[in-house]
């Protein structure tokens, strides 16, 4: 990985509070090439906030600082709201956990995906419709013409998530953040959605940040994994080596999850060490 797509150095996200500020992300540094990078952590670990910071989507009154945060040579720290708008949707995109909340309920699937084409790609209506259908087909929706005319509430969970992915990818971004994209889905559907993401990465050379709490999914799907705890990246390892992680938190997390392979009489619990945050 000679030329990383994304370079992040000393990323901090702070939410000032009435009494004390909450440091949601602390000194996070990592790079992303054209690969699948997993970010694992429990709730409050800062994994989602990290993802949002990379897209300039940290909600007010959060403050984002970093030594470096650059994407394909562009310094993200100096982006204005206009720059962000041009980047998002066009070159970087995000798939969220629940398609129900991310799709506009009063617009058809086709209209929503087509809008991106009109807005970002300057296509004509006809081109946009053709492109939308092609995209729906690409995420393996069986009947693209029918789905094109459906409203979000008429979609099942797996279909909704595919539509979301189609919408996010229609502008052909080369960097995608997927925040718990399969957590609301059944396991059998989950793997189909993962396969679509997987193919997109390998076919198109996209960079993917895959945020999840599910160790099994991350270790089997990603190339590299960052483990976050309390806003800090406590460990970085190859995904397949997650079972042999070194950091006590990662080890505890792995041991705390019930497994189909190992019969445990009692599950390990995580004893939190304040040292981990230093």
């Amino acid at each position: 990985m000679t030329d990383p797509l994304l370079t992040v150095e000393d990323l901090n996200v702070t939410f000032p509070g009435r009494e004390t500020a909450v440091r949601a992300v602390r000194n996070a540094s990592f790079t992303l090439g054209r690969e699948r990078l997993g970010i694992v952590g429990e709730s409050g670990s800062g994994k989602s906030t990290t993802g949002r910071a990379l897209l300039g989507l940290v909600p007010r009154p959060g403050i984002v600082t970093a030594k470096t945060m650059s994407y394909a040579g562009q310094n993200l720290l100096q982006c204005t709201e206009r720059d962000w708008q041009r980047l998002r949707g066009r070159r970087m995109s995000m798939v969220m956990q629940d398609p129900k909340y991310s799709l506009n309920p009063v617009k058809t699937v086709g209209a929503q995906i087509g809008e991106t084409c009109l807005l970002h790609l300057g296509m004509t209506r006809k081109q946009a419709a053709a492109r939308t259908l092609a995209m729906l087909e690409a995420v393996r929706i069986r009947d693209p013409e029918l789905t094109y005319q459906l409203y979000p509430h008429q979609l099942s969970g797996g279909m909704g998530q595919r539509v979301m992915i189609a919408m996010m990818l229609v502008a052909e971004p080369d960097f995608l953040i997927a925040d718990e994209p399969t957590s609301a889905l059944d396991v059998t559907v989950q793997n189909e959605v993962l396969r679509i993401l997987d193919d997109l990465v390998s076919e198109r050379g996209m960079g993917l940040i895959f945020i999840s709490h599910n160790l099994t999914v991350v270790s089997s799907f990603c190339d590299r994994v960052l483990i976050m705890y309390g806003g800090k990246i406590v460990e970085e390892c190859a995904a397949r080596d997650l079972q042999n992680a070194r950091h006590p938190y990662t080890r505890a997390l792995v041991a705390a999850a019930p497994s189909l392979d190992i019969q445990r009489t009692e599950l390990a619990t995580v004893t939190r060490d304040p040292e981990w945050l230093k």
Binding site: E42, S43, H213, L215, A252, L253, A256, A257, P258, E266, L267, A268, T269, V270
Partner: peptide, 11 residues
């Protein structure tokens, strides 16, 4: 629940 909390509840 989170994995670590799940472990506590299951135990």
């Amino acid at each position: 629940l989170d994995v670590s909390i799940q472990a506590e509840i299951l135990n």
